[in-house]
Design a protein around this nucleic acid. Structure first.
Ligand SMILES: [Zn+2]
Ligand SMILES: [Zn+2]
Ligand SMILES: [Zn+2]
Ligand SMILES: [Zn+2]
Lengths: 161, 161
DNA sequence: GAAGCTGATGCTACACTATAACAAAGGCCC
DNA sequence: GGGCCTTTGTTATAGTGTAGCATCAGCTTC
């Protein structure tokens, strides 16, 4: 992980351009390595998702995309989002039906998301203890885990103050 | 928790009538204690959700409800589901947009759900270590946690075999 | 270079999930 | 009876996500 800035938390003020550049660079590198196509359309969608650290709905992406890409329709967006999720470049926040740029793209992981209900900022956290607890619980139930959703809603440090 | 049978896991074979009866009895008691109305409509919806240990979609509930309740419409169902969720009698499975009877109604809790992608059976588990890990992670991020979603998809013991 | 293949996008229509807004009905208190 | 609150009825619409097939561009193969 050479992308220091992208690992900043979802603080209210920081140089977010760095986050975006890092995310795009990482995405290009990863897709090149894997031999999959990060087309201009897909890159644009990734860029839109990365506009902020708030999860963004598919139809918000569509509205934004349509400014520069007149032929954009729901399938256009959903296909790009599906691609980006398959490559681990974005996550879907299930409790919001919205999408968020991944700050750990490349390393396979299943994050924990802290979602502020006031400002919307959402932070992705990796937590070995959480992983251990989930693995242990699955094992105890003899359940073969494949996909995880761990989301906590509440108030971020700034908004709670 | 005197409702032993409801604490059975989502095994493929068990006496599910006991689950339903336990859930309805608990619901009636809880609502009486709290002075809220478990009306016939709401009880019927709870019964429908408890038809199985698989999460059930709102429109499935509607179809089933409409058999005995001709005036049923989407708001009818969603209002009942909202009530049941507010009273902690059912949970929403966010990754499926579906609803599941709660096996620990009454005790405030935030469960872990193991969702079998093959048979659909979904088990709710309470896990102190998971709670501790989530509390710790929230605290470290100075995040004030309010609502949790923890869902694991995969294969249950029976379906993995 | 024509034919055929593959992956990506265009395009229309539709399915599924959820809520807004207001009316009507019933119980309860005074 | 009148006012209040909760629940349900009713119509319409908003929001989220897919199916299915056409087209196009790049590549391979002959
Ligand atoms: Zn940023
Ligand atoms: Zn906040
Ligand atoms: Zn059962
Ligand atoms: Zn199963």
């Amino acid at each position: 992980m050479t992308r220091g800035a992208a690992q900043q938390t979802a603080h209210h003020t920081h140089n977010h351009k760095v986050c975006i550049e890092d995310a795009l660079t990482t995405a290009r590198d990863l897709c090149a390595e894997r031999g999959v196509q990060l087309t201009p359309l897909r890159e644009k969608v990734l860029q839109i998702v990365w506009r902020s650290h708030k999860p963004v709905g598919a139809y918000e992406v569509l509205d934004e995309l349509a400014r520069s890409h007149k032929s954009a329709r729901p399938p256009t967006v959903y296909r790009a989002l599906d691609f980006l999720m398959a490559e681990g470049l974005i996550h879907k926040i299930q409790s919001l039906n919205a999408y968020l740029g991944c700050v750990e793209a490349g390393a396979p992981h299943s994050g924990l998301f802290l979602i502020c209900r006031k400002c919307g900022a959402t932070e992705e956290i990796a937590d070995p203890k959480l992983d251990a607890a989930l693995d242990q619980a699955s094992k105890r139930a003899r359940f073969r885990s494949e996909r995880r959703v761990v989301e906590i809603s509440g108030l971020c440090a700034q908004c709670a103050a």
